[in-house]
Design a protein around this nucleic acid. Structure first.
Length: 558
RNA sequence: GCGCCCGUAGCUCAGCCUGGAUAGAGCGCCGGACUACGAAUCCGUAGGCCGCAAGUUCGAAUCUUGCCGGGCGCACCA
């Protein structure tokens, strides 16, 4: 639609130049926009104002000559006006919007998809929470954003892989083992002073109990230090597996599916971490200082160098992260996207440095920083202390407010702004809660279609006669919105911003509810009814299409 | 101190990338609409120095700079 109008303008520009009405043949890109105010037409362009200086003419004169040379308004344009300082406003015939119905109807769940990605391989890594405790709400937001961004990119022709990185190595896993082991000993009657540095949550006790039940007191006999170490590492392994399994289940019931779960430990097992460090040493971008090995990230834009091997010989997390990211590119990804909590933003320059050091362009690495979630209940903050083990898990939230509400709310804001997540509000089934507002459209339309079958209006009829009945302003507004969907998807993909789809859906829902309240779909006139049924069917398809990208269900009944 | 993010209606937020005409939505307030397709809905009223200031521009919520306020981060932690 936009394209057709743009071409008409280009044609007019050329003609105007040839006839000598315009002095210069330098034409800028024609931008068409939808005016905010309805009275300014369906589309408008500011081309005449932009050209004013290069053509050395008054904007209004330019606009006039463009219009004069638009010999063919085509079948879509009703009238054209010059307005304000030199805008050209286009008013379309209602029938101009009819083709969108067919596109939506035929493409259905693929409507809005595209091939702008051209098969480019992208990896989206998200959540990647340490298997030392259950997922909490913050992880939920990351999961919703990462999953949805992946869906959207894939919808736009990118070859997307979703991945979870398991930090199953290093000190905090050891701490996990120690925590479990201490609880285990406690369960067997020892008096334990439980250190504050250990994990406090009840889930630690649960795991310890399992070990006690399965293995009895066999770990209590510890003659040497290495016996204790063995016991701790046994506990660590078991606990990490147990917790990871819980994380998998939580994400599964949250509707998030990963293509791959990648283990940090495997990078050590395969020697990848060592080989990366050796490689960097050869390149002389790793050096020794104060007994530690430092990576010269400052050569690649970081503010200072970073340690990869500590004085005591332990590798830092950064070391395995470097190896991990290098490994990603070796798997052939053109672009690597990491979804992180905003508190990790300081980590970006060094990660980017490592990517560049292994020969990739910094544009091949992108971090989506998701801001924090403030959990509220009825407007009051909910205490969230990880150290004390008092936090609301994602599982709790899901069982309290439901998966759809949770996912939708996480995506009602730009990931860049902090999110207040109110449990009471999320449960409400009123218009405070936009998820039901949108889902209700889908259910309502299903209901009308059921009703139409009862009345034997039955099958969706899509012929011209029925479509021609769609002349109400509310119907045109709906079709305009449907036509805007592909553009919304494309923007959402380019900017990696799922909330644009959320807002689109809320707007479409609002247009539909207004239409529904003003006009009847099922009337005494079968042709009119057919036309309207056709229209609302396309609305329903787009609602479902969009909700699917957000990972939210589209119910037929609520 | 340095870096990143945020500041738009009473509240919660879109819009900013790609400048355009009278700045939008939901909630809340006030007032209305169910004997026909689902009232989880709709209609209407009120409510704004778009944090402040300067710059660029024919034109700035949008771009640039400075300032103010808030959040987060600045480890041989993860």
């Amino acid at each position: 639609m936009k394209q057709e109008i743009k071409e008409l303008i280009y044609k007019a520009l050329k003609q105007a130049y040839q006839k000598g009405d315009l002095p210069s043949s330098e034409f800028p890109e024609v931008e068409l926009e939808e005016p905010k105010a309805r009275m300014h037409g369906d589309f408008s362009t500011n081309i005449a104002m932009i050209m004013a200086s290069s053509q050395k003419m008054a904007p209004k004169k330019i606009a006039e000559s463009i219009i004069n040379h638009m010999d063919d308004f085509g079948s879509i344009i009703l009238k054209v006006e010059i307005a304000g300082p030199g805008f050209i406003n286009f008013y379309l015939r209602q029938s101009a919007w009819y083709p969108v119905l067919r596109r939506v109807y035929e493409q259905g769940e693929r409507y809005g998809s595209s091939n702008i990605g051209k098969g480019e391989k992208i990896q989206v890594e998200f959540v990647s929470s340490n298997p030392t405790g259950p997922l909490h709400v913050g992880h939920g937001r990351g999961a919703a954003v990462g999953d949805s961004v992946g869906n959207i990119l894939s919808f736009c022709g990118y070859d997307v892989q979703k991945e979870y990185y398991i930090n199953d190595s290093g000190r905090q896993i050891n701490t996990l083992g120690r925590s479990v082991f201490l609880r285990y000993r406690e369960l067997l009657g020892e008096k334990i002073e439980f250190p504050a540095t250990c994990y406090q949550g009840d889930y630690i006790r649960d795991i310890a109990t399992k070990i006690k039940d399965a293995d009895g007191n066999q770990f209590l006999d510890r003659n040497e230090e290495k016996d204790e170490e063995k016991a701790v590492s046994y506990c660590a392994k078991l606990a990490a597996e147990e917790i990871l399994e819980g994380i998998r289940q939580d994400l599964d019931s949250f509707g998030v599916k990963f293509n791959k779960w990648f283990s940090e430990q495997s990078l050590y097992d395969s020697g990848m971490v060592d080989s990366v460090i050796n490689n960097f040493e050869k390149k002389k971008i790793i050096y020794k200082k104060d007994g530690a090995l430092w990576f010269k990230t400052s050569d690649f834009g970081d503010e200072k160098d970073r340690v990869v091997v500590k004085k005591n010989g332990e590798k830092t997390y950064f070391a395995s992260d470097i190896a991990y990211h290098q490994e990603k590119y070796e798997r052939g990804f053109d672009l690597v996207i990491d979804v992180w909590g905003a508190d990790h933003h300081g980590y970006i320059p060094r990660m980017s440095a490592s990517v560049q050091a292994s020969g990739r362009d910094k544009s091949q690495f992108h971090v989506i920083l998701v801001q924090l979630v403030n959990l509220l209940r009825g407007g009051e903050p909910v205490a969230m202390s990880t150290r004390a083990g008092e936090f609301v898990t994602l599982k709790d939230v899901m069982s309290e407010v439901g998966r759809d509400a949770a996912r939708f709310i996480f995506l009602t804001r730009h990931y860049d702004s902090p999110l207040d997540f109110d449990l009471e509000l999320a449960k409400k089934k009123t218009s405070d809660n936009p998820v039901y507002y949108v889902q209700y459209v889908h259910a309502r339309i299903s209901s009308i279609i059921r009703k139409s079958a009862e009345r034997e209006i039955s099958d969706i009829v899509t012929d011209d006669e029925a479509v021609a009945m769609l002349i109400q302003p509310e119907e045109v507004e709906l079709m305009k919105a449907l036509a805007r969907y592909p553009e919304t998807i494309e923007n959402s993909a380019k900017l990696m911003e799922p909330h644009r789809i959320t807002f689109f859906l809320m707007n479409l829902a609002s247009l539909f509810h207004a239409y529904y309240n003003k006009h009847r779909v099922l009337t005494d006139d079968p042709i009119l009814s057919h036309g309207r049924l056709y229209l609302i069917t396309t609305v329903q398809k787009v609602i479902r299409n969009g909700l699917t990208l957000l990972g939210v269900s589209a119910p037929d009944k609520m």
